[in-house]
């Protein structure tokens, strides 16, 4: 296999080498650096740092200096420095989150960035749901997700950096603003948002750490089950049931539609594990509300992904095509609203 090095890869290698040497207090060699995923704006790189002859598998999370973020992303996503502190707090509280190691400085010139330990496992739903090595894990995932979520919600707020607080009403207002900015009439989303508005749960006296994007595709699994929870950039303070509802949105079942808990189990299984691990008692009506909310939310995210391409902020066929997935959530919403509650 040939190794392609771009000027960007060379720069990142050099800067990581310097920053890692500062952190580990000695010479460090960077090997096997490769871009993992993400768009232009929020990048993940995988690499190994050789420290005193020991190979350390690491991850770089990086936002290059301002490019490609939509208004909405700027409005809802936390910056990398805040994410670093949230993941640190969750990790220290015993959550299966990656261990954050060190931040890069503005002088390093890579934009907002930090380095964390790389954990084994895969996130690809299609493989997790169907491939043989995950046979045993499949039966455990729904319960593990409930258990881990209870721990996330139990994170001591005093250990967290300042985070935005988002209650049901803020979320609804945010999505209506999104629809207005997109400029096309969306009757089904309007219907669902009004339904949600009339039934919204009261704000909590004590909001908790909400992961904000707790779903299949955003955690790693190996043969033993869930190894780590990823993608903390939408973390905020709010209603814990928000995470439970989002995990059950049909789009994260990847075809396993009879298993609402991320494609791996029933809602009741998820809630029971959550309650056993110390999470609060789950009110099914409240969970249904957040599942409806999550479904509209994902639908509008689809439209926004397409808008990134249409507005010219990034040129991407993949983003453009996601716009045509919004209707999947319209189908789901009409079904969910018929179930009442």
């Amino acid at each position: 296999m040939s190794v392609h090095t771009s000027p960007e890869t060379e720069t990142v290698t050099r800067v990581l080498g310097e920053a890692a040497s500062r952190h580990f207090g000695g010479p460090v060699t960077i090997e096997r650096l490769s871009r993992q995923s993400g768009g232009a704006s929020r990048q993940t790189w995988s690499f190994d740092a050789i420290v005193n002859g020991t190979r350390q598998p690491l991850i770089l999370r990086r936002d290059p200096p301002a490019q490609g973020k939509t208004e909405r992303e700027r409005a809802v996503a936390i910056d990398r420095a805040t994410e670093f502190r949230v993941v640190r707090a969750a990790h220290d509280a015993g959550v299966r989150a990656p261990e954050p190691l060190f931040e890069l400085t503005p002088q390093d010139g890579l934009g907002e960035a930090y380095v964390m330990r790389r954990v084994g496992g895969i996130a690809i739903a299609r493989k997790l749901l169907r491939d043989a090595p995950y046979e045993a894990a499949r039966g455990k995932i729904a319960g593990q997700l409930g258990e881990i979520l209870a721990r996330i919600h139990a994170t001591d707020p005093a250990t967290l950096p300042p985070l935005p607080r988002r209650e049901a009403a803020d979320h609804i207002a945010g999505l209506r603003r999104s629809l207005d900015a997109l400029g096309r009439p969306q009757p089904v989303f309007e219907l669902a948002l009004s339904w949600l508005d009339r039934r919204k749960p009261a704000p909590l006296d004590r909001p908790v750490l909400v992961h904000g994007d707790y779903r299949t595709g955003n955690y790693l699994v190996d043969e033993t089950g869930v190894t780590t929870i990823l993608d903390w950039e939408l973390a905020h303070l709010g209603d814990p049931v928000e995470d439970l509802g989002w995990l059950c949105v049909k789009s994260w079942r990847f075809g396993a539609i009879d298993k609402p808990a991320g494609g791996f189990g029933s809602r009741e299984e998820l809630w029971a594990a959550y309650e056993r691990a110390g999470g609060g008692r789950v009110d099914p009506a409240r969970a249904h509300w957040w599942e409806v909310f999550g479904t509209v939310h994902w639908g509008i995210i689809c439209l926004n992904q397409a808008w990134k391409h249409l507005s010219g902020s990034i040129k991407s066929m993949e983003h453009a095509s996601i716009g045509r997935r919004a209707v999947e959530t319209e189908v789901d919403l009409l079904q969910l609203l018929k179930q009442g509650a």
Binding site: P187, V188, L191, S194, V327, E328, E330, V331, L334, L337
Partner: peptide, 27 residues
């Protein structure tokens, strides 16, 4: 709102036509 049966019948029919184009396998 969703208590309007004519409205709901219209939305059901519209979304059925939309999904038949965008992703007929979705269920």
């Amino acid at each position: 709102d969703e208590t309007d049966a004519a409205l709901m019948a219209h939305l059901e029919a519209t979304i059925a036509d939309k999904i038949a184009i965008a992703n007929p396998k979705w269920r």
